[in-house]
């Protein structure tokens, strides 16, 4: 769908993107992660043809990115806004027409969206009369109204209350089910694990990691488990097939320990060792969250 190849973007004082390459698969949700100032917005602006890279190419469905692709991309910038003094219906139609819809078509689709989000009464309202959350909803509608193949969302949930964030998330998922590819940029990792199929991690202008979320997390497995048992607290003499990591968390007579497997042992060996000694309530593999991977990676690089 979108293939970004060896992009370099140089600004006066610094290099915003240094040889960044990405592949976004069609029909997937792709997360672009990175701390603030890493170069995410610069990359997104290049995909939107707001700026051009110093070197490198972007391909859209196999074609070199050009003006004809503009109408097939929907973009919700991080810094967003609408004309404050303009009526919302008129404004949405204007923005949709800039994306190549006819007036009638824009009108029809806008009615559909207003009904869907339960905001039919807003048509004649001016933006300045709406609350921030309502403005965000309107902005989202403006982004997707022309039914783009690629939807680019820069920090889409900032500014939404939890209820509306959920509404928008559902809409994003539905658009994705209908076939739209979604590229979304964030520094909030929680949303990534829920939504994204694949991610790329950008830090200090470089891509430092990319791939499917599942694969990345699996590759960060390090044979660590959480075990909860009930009874007297166990003492280990060094013959057990694992090492204790960190402290034991005890509450009444239930204890939680964090272990790391020794050598070639697996979780069954752990259970076989423990079952004669105590009562096991839980054994759970600890896979690092994206947040942990993110922090580890970023710290590791710097």
């Amino acid at each position: 769908m979108l293939s970004i190849r060896h992009i370099v973007k140089q600004y006066a004082g610094h290099r915003a993107l240094n040889d960044v390459s990405l592949e976004v698969e069609s029909g997937k949700i792709f997360g672009l992660l990175g701390p603030n100032g890493a170069g995410k917005t610069s990359l997104i602006r290049i995909v939107n043809q707001i700026t051009a890279p110093d070197s490198g190419e972007v391909y859209f469905n196999g074609e070199r990115l050009n003006q004809s692709h503009i109408n097939r991309i929907g973009y919700l910038p991080e810094e967003r806004g609408l004309y404050k003094k303009m009526e919302i219906g008129e404004q949405m139609i204007y923005l949709a027409r800039l994306k190549g819809l006819s007036r009638d078509e824009a009108n029809k689709r806008l009615k559909y969206w207003f009904e869907k989000l339960g905001i039919e009464g807003w048509w004649k309202k001016k933006i300045e009369e709406l609350s921030k959350g309502m403005q965000q909803k309107a902005q989202f509608v403006a982004t997707v109204m022309h039914e783009p193949d690629l939807i680019i969302l820069d920090e889409p949930f900032s500014g939404f209350d939890p209820v509306n964030a959920e509404v928008i998330k559902d809409e994003i998922l539905e658009l994705n089910r209908k076939g739209a590819t979604i590229l979304f940029s964030t520094h909030r990792m929680e949303s990534v694990e829920e939504l994204c199929d694949s991610i790329a991690l950008i830090n200090k202008s470089q891509k430092i990691l990319d791939g499917k979320v599942k694969h990345i997390r699996n590759s960060y497995r390090n044979d660590t488990y959480l075990i909860e048992y009930t009874g007297q607290q166990l003492n280990f003499d060094g013959t057990q097939p694992f090492e204790i990591v960190g402290d034991t968390l005890s509450e009444d007579d239930s204890h939680i320990i964090r272990i790391k497997l020794n050598g070639s042992h697996n979780s069954n060996d752990v259970l076989q060792y423990l079952i004669p000694r105590t009562r096991i309530n839980m054994l759970q593999e600890v896979i690092p969250s994206m947040n942990e991977i993110f922090i580890e990676k970023v710290n590791h690089i710097s």
Partner: peptide
């Protein structure tokens, strides 16, 4: 200035 401060500018120049 209005377009810049209301931040609609980025939405518009992603279209034109």
């Amino acid at each position: 200035i209005e377009e810049k401060t209301s931040r609609i500018i980025e939405v518009v120049i992603s279209s034109v």
